[in-house]
Design a protein around this nucleic acid. Sequence first.
RNA 1: GCGGAUGUGGCGUAAUGGCAGCCGCGCCAGACUUAGGAUCUGGUGCCGUAAGGCGUGGGGGUUCGAGUCCCUUCAUCCGCACCA
Length: 1089
Amino acid sequence: MDYHFKDIEQRWQKFWAENKTFRTEDASAKPKYYVLDMFPYPSGAGLHVGHPLGYIASDIVARYKRHKGFNVLHPMGYDSFGLPAEQYAIQTGQHPAITTEQNINRYREQLDKIGFSFDWEREVRTSDPEYYKWTQWIFIQLFNAWYNPRTNKTEHIDSLIKVFETEGFKGDHHDILTGDIEHNLDAFTSEEWKKFDEKKRSDVLMNFRIAYLGEAYVNWCPALGTVLANDEVKEGVSERGGYPVEKKLMKQWSMRITAYSQRLLDGLDKIDWTDSLKESQRNWIGKSEGTSLRFKVLTPNPSPRERGTKLYYLTADADKAALLLKLAKNNRKGPTPSEDILWQALRNRKVGGFKFRRQHPIKMFIADFVCLEKNIVVEIDGGYHFTDEQKKADEIRTSELEIARFKVIRFTNEEVLNDLDSVCQQIRQVCEDSPSPMERGPGGEDIEVFTTRPDTIFGVSFVTLAPEHELVSKITTDEFRSAVDAYVTMATNRSERDRMADVKNVSGQFTGAYAIHPFTGKNIPVYIGDYVLAGYGTGAVMAVPAHDERDFKFATHFKLEKPQVITPTREHSFEENSWDEKEGKLVNSDFLNGLEVKAAIKKAIEKIEEKKIGNGKINFRLRDAVFGRQRYWGEPIPVYYKNGIPHCIPENELPLVLPEVDKFLPTEDGEPPLARAKDWKYKGEFDYEHTTMPGWAGSSWYFLRYMDANNKNEFVSKNAVDYWGSVDLYLGGSEHATGHLLYVRFWTMALKDLGFINVEEPAKKLINQGMIQGRSNFIYKLKDENKYVSFGLKDKYETRRLYIDVNLVSNDELNLEEFKNLKNSYLEDNCNAEFILEDAKYICGYEVEKMSKSKWNVVSPDKICAEYGADCLRLYEMFLGPLELSKPWNTNGITGVYGFLKKLWRLFYASNDQRQTTNETTTNDKQLTVSDEAPTKEELKTLHKTIKKITEDIDRFSFNTSVSSFMICVNELTELKCNKRQILEPLLILISPYAPHISEELWNKLGHNDSIAFEKFPEFNPEYLVESNFSYPVSFNGKTRFQLELPVSLTVQEIEKEVMSREEVKKYLGDATPKKIIIVPKRIINIVH
RNA sequence: GCGGAUGUGGCGUAAUGGCAGCCGCGCCAGACUUAGGAUCUGGUGCCGUAAGGCGUGGGGGUUCGAGUCCCUUCAUCCGCACCA
C-alpha cells in the first residue's frame, strides 16, 4: 500500500475540526503553555510560502508541549484593519469590510491545508466590533490615566487631580509631575486650579494623559492622506507604498509612550528576546545621559562691531549703498552751519569717548550723525522740517531706523547754534545711559540645550537651533528675518527623504541673535540649521566644533571659530577633523583644565547645577506615538467634542461602530473620511472624533484577548490572565521590532499598573523567523527570433533575459510542455517557441529577490500541498535551515523530504518479501506489516538516540536538525528491517509534531482510535546508548592517524598503556619520545611529541 | 557612521573546544523494469596515480587540540542613522 497523502491529510484535517481536537481548556490542572504567532494582515495576495514558516515552527512547539502534558494555547487571528484594504476600496469602491472578509476566508482555507493545531474558537479579528469595542475601552482607560513619576506607575487621572487640588503645579519644566511633558506648562496653585473652568482643566490635564490630544510635528504623508508613526516611516518614505513624508505641525491624538522609556529599556534585561531585537529597541528608545544647560539670549542684539562683523560700518542697503555714499559725500561738502558746528564738536569728542560719523548711509537713508557703537543717530532738523508732510516723512524715517535698531535723537538748528554744550551733554547722556531701549543686554529668552559633553563647554563657539524651534521667530533680528524665514520654510517644507538625502550638505542660517556664554560671558552667535532635530532633546545644541563632527562641518561652512578644549590622545589634525572621542585632557577650560574627559563631565555638571543654569538630565530618542489616522478603515476613537472639549463616550455605550460613508476619501475641506458619515454625531449633537486608530492599536493587546476570546463582559477576565500570564513563546518577523513589539509592551505595562492584568511583559521568549526570499528564474530569448537558449549556452548568442514563472520550473529545468501550453502568456507566441537545449534540457538562470508577483517568483503553499502534501511542506520548510535565518525559497531539495515520508510509510507497509509478515491482531489494517516482537538492542539505540536529539532540538528551537535526525532514524530502521511496534509507536509520536497527518494515520492503522496529539512524549533512556567499546581516534600533535577500539571501562592509565603498546604508534612516532599524552575517555587520544 | 547577524563542498546545511562536511539536493556509476519527475545499491571537499598533502573569508593569538574561544581585518545581509 502506497503513501497517499491527499486522502490522509484531508481525513485528519476533517477529524480535528469535527472533534475539536485542539480546543483549549480555559482552566486546567495541567501547566500552561502559551505559544503565539504574530497574526497576519490578510492581504489580497494570499499566503506565500514565507508566511507559514513561523506558524509551522510554533505548531511544532504547540504539539510537542501537548505531548509533554501542557495545556497549550495556540491561537490565530487577523490584524484586519489597515491601509491596503482601504487603498483598494478607494480604487474600486468596494467596502474594505467585504474585501477583508474575502481575504480572511482565503487565508483560512490556506492555513487549514497545512494542518495547524490552532484553536479556531478563539480567533480574533481586530476589525470586528466585538473586538474593537475593547480596543476602544482600553483607549478610554488610557485617556483617564497619567504616569505618576513619584510612584513610577500609571495611575487614574483622579490621583493627579487630587495633587492639583492640594499642591497645584509648580510649572517648572523639570517638575517631576510632568514626566518631561513636551511643552512648558505654566504654574498654578491649588486655589487657581479650583477656579479653572472646564476647558482650562481639560487643557491642563491633556498634558498628562497617556492618550492625549496634542500639537506636535508629525510625519504627514500626502499621498496616503494621513499621518504616520515614526516606525511607519522608513528612509523618509512611508513603509506602506513608499510615498514621500513631510513634517507638519498638527493637533493629533497621541500615546505618551515616552513616559515608559526607562521601563521599556529596563524590561529588556528580563526577557529572552534575540539580541538584535533588544538592541533595536534600545536604539529606538535611545537613552543618553547628559545635562541641560541654559544660554541667555542677548536682547535685542549687539552692535555689528560687537558681533565682530568686519564691515560693520556698512549699514546701507546693499543695492543702494553706492548711490547713497555718493550723495553722502556730496552732503559732507556742503554742511549747514549747525551741522558743521555739531560735527566739529562730535569729531573733537565733546560728547565723551563716543565716535560719530557724519552723513552716514543707513539702510535707505543718510543720517546726519551716527554712533555705530551705540546705534545712535543724531539728526538736526532745519526749518523745512516743520511741515506736516515732512513730519510724517520723519516719523517713517525714525521708525525705519528704529527697526534697524538705531535710536534717533533730534535737535533743531536753533538748539545746536544757541546751546551746543547742552546738545552735547544730551548726546553724551544718551550714549552713556545704558541700557537704552535700543541697546542689547541680557534679555528674557533662554535657549536650553541638551548635551552629553558638558566638559566641552569652553569650546562652545555658537549655538544652533532647529528651524522649527519656537524661539527662532522671537530672537531673529530684522536684518536676518527674511533670510531666516526663507530657510525655515525651505527646511520644513522639504520632504524627509530630501532632507536625509541632503545630509552631507551643510545648511543653516544666522539669526542675527547672540547668546551669552554662561561661563565666559562671551557673545556667541545663534544659528539655525536642519542638522539639529526639533524632536530630539531641546531642539537646540551648544556647538563645539573642535569636538563634534557635525558642529565642525557647520563651523567650517560658516567660517566660525573652533576653539580646542581637549588634547587628543593620538596624533590629530584639527584642521581636518574634530576630536570627538571621550578621551584626553581638558585645556583652555578654566576650572576644567587638566581633567580627563570623564572627570571633567562630572565636574562640569556640578558647576552647572551650582550656578543653577542647568541640570544633569537623561534624554530619550523615543517620541510619543501618534495615534490618530486620517483614514477610514480603523477603529473609531471613542471621543466626542462638546464646547471644544474632548470627552470619551461612556463605556457602556461601546462599541462606537465604524459608520458608513459614501466614499473612502477625505472631504473637500480636507477632513478625514469619517467626516463624510451622515448624521454621525454623539446624541445627534456633538461631533465625534474623525480620525481612526492606527494599525498597532488592535495588535497591542490581542495576546490578552486570545486568553478569553469570547468574553462579552470584559476585555479579558482576571482568571484567564492569571492562568495564562504572558506568552511563553512568541514568533514573528523582526520588522516589528520598533513598532508593534514596543507598543504591546507599553500597553501591557499600562494595563498592569491600572490593575487589569498581572503581567509586566507580554512575551517571555521571542524568536524572529527569517524571511523567505523569492528565487526568480530566467529564460533567454534570442534577438528577433522566437527561440530560447538554455542558461549554459546563452553567452554564445545575443539574448534578452525574461522572467519566467517559477511554477513552470523544477530544479531550474523548464518544463517545455507546460511552457508551450501556457495560455494568456505575457510571452508572445509561446506555443510555437523553439529551444536550444543543453543535455536535452532547458536550464533557467536564477536570482534571489524579494518574493513578488511582478517577478513571477511567488510560490504559494497550496501548490506544494497539492504536489507533496502538507506534511512534506511542513518538514521541508523546517529542513531549509535554522528558523531565524533568511533564505531563498528553493524546492530543489523537497524530493528528499518527500522520499523520507515514503520511507517512513514503508516501515509499516513493507512488501512481504522484505519483512516478515505481521503477527498482529489488533491493527486497523490487515496489510500493515508490524510486529509485536521485542526490539533488538540496535533498534532501541536508534530510537533513543533520536528521542534524545529531538527533545534537545525542540528545546532550542533547532527544527532543521530534527528533520535530519528523523531521516537518519528512518534510514537506520530501514537498514535494520525494523517493523517492531515498540519502536514504531514512539517514533510516530516523535514525528507527529512535525508531520501530524501521516502520524495520525499510521497511529490509527496501528489500532488506536484516539488522536495521537495527546500521547505522552517518549522518555529518553540513556541505558540504551551505553556501549561497551569506544573507537578512539588516535592523533599525533592533533592530527588523527588511526582508530583504536577500546573498552570504555578502561582507566586513563590503562588506555595509555594500551595505546603505547601499538605498532601504529611506533610508526607515527618514529624516534621521537612523546612529551605528553592527552586522553579524554570516550573522546580522543592525542599524543604530543 | 553606529549596532546586529552571517561567512564551511557545486547548492541548502551539520558539528557540548575533541575524527570538519551529518542529513538532503545535485552529480557519477550500477541494479530493477510498467522507460519514469518511481525504487534500490555504491561513490562524491580539493590537489595527487598513490603515499600523502591542503582545507571552515584573510591575518594573528590562547590551547595538547579551534569551524567553535580571544584580538584584528575583509565581505555580504539587515536595522538605525546629523540623536547633540
